[in-house]
């Protein structure tokens, strides 16, 4: 196809952002608009340059990368853990986790709570305090387009769905053979007898 480069006015900016791992979502109004209108041309151009432009129906664009550097692996793990810890946190609060995830502003207190709840996991990724969590995770989420700043607080954006999708793929993990929630009780009594 014929790509009219003059028409892709935001090309430099878009390529720079996407190639550094940024996720363009609807809040990046100008870039989003540009990608939305000329999706085909951008997609073809980036494919020719060796990058796969992906559009998600929930409102974000990103480059599909199948090899991430080791360092990015760690960052992505931190994002995953933080997202799941937030889901757990909101569910325990009695809120619908999916809605709360995108609606509730994430404050320092919330970060401190999830850190405390999942300390032994965050610890493995060298996050030891809410300040660490803010610096290592939330600020990076800003940089990669997973969150936006709301004053002192953070708000998650639609690219977080990438982690929720991954979460939905873990069904098989929970299946341990011969396990059921009702059975543990009988064994309590057994043990008490011993």
């Amino acid at each position: 196809m014929q790509i009219e480069l003059e028409q892709l006015t935001q090309l430099a900016e878009i390529h720079k952002k996407l190639s550094t791992g940024y996720h363009v979502s609807e809040q990046d109004f100008a870039l989003w608009q540009e990608l939305d209108t000329n999706e085909e041309a951008y997609s073809a151009l980036f494919t020719a340059l060796g990058n796969q432009l992906k559009r998600d129906s929930r409102g974000y664009f990103h480059f599909d990368v199948d090899d991430a550097t080791v360092n990015m692996g760690k960052i992505s793990r931190l994002f995953a853990l933080t997202t799941y810890a937030l889901v757990e946190f909101f569910a325990d609060q009695g809120q619908d986790p999916l809605r709360a995830l995108f609606e509730v502003e994430i404050s320092h207190e919330i970060l401190a709570s999830i850190l405390q709840q999942q300390y032994h996991l965050f610890e493995q990724l060298e996050v030891f305090s809410a300040t660490d969590l803010k610096r290592e995770v939330m600020n990076r989420m800003l940089r990669y387009g997973f969150a936006k700043a709301q004053g002192e607080h953070f708000k998650l954006l639609s690219p977080v769905y990438r982690y929720l999708d991954a979460l939905m793929a873990v069904d098989q993990l929970a299946e341990f053979p011969g396990e059921s929630s009702t059975s543990s009780f009988t064994s309590n009594q057994e043990q008490a007898d011993v």
């Binding site: 190639s19 550094t20 791992g21 996720h23 990103h62 480059f63 990368v65 199948d66 090899d67 991430a68 550097t69 360092n71 990015m72 692996g73 960052i75 992505s76 793990r77 994002f79 995953a80 853990l81 799941y84 810890a85 757990e88 999942q118 032994h120 996991l121 493995q124 990724l125 990669y144 990438r162 982690y163 999708d165 991954a166 979460l167 793929a169 873990v170 993990l173 929970a174």
Partner: peptide, 25 residues
Amino acid sequence: LAHLRKKGLEPTLEQLVPKFSSDHQ
């Protein structure tokens, strides 16, 4: 999270997390 607590973080999250490119790349 329960699985991670028991079996450790690395092996499970490794395959699970989405990948995106980095400055380094």
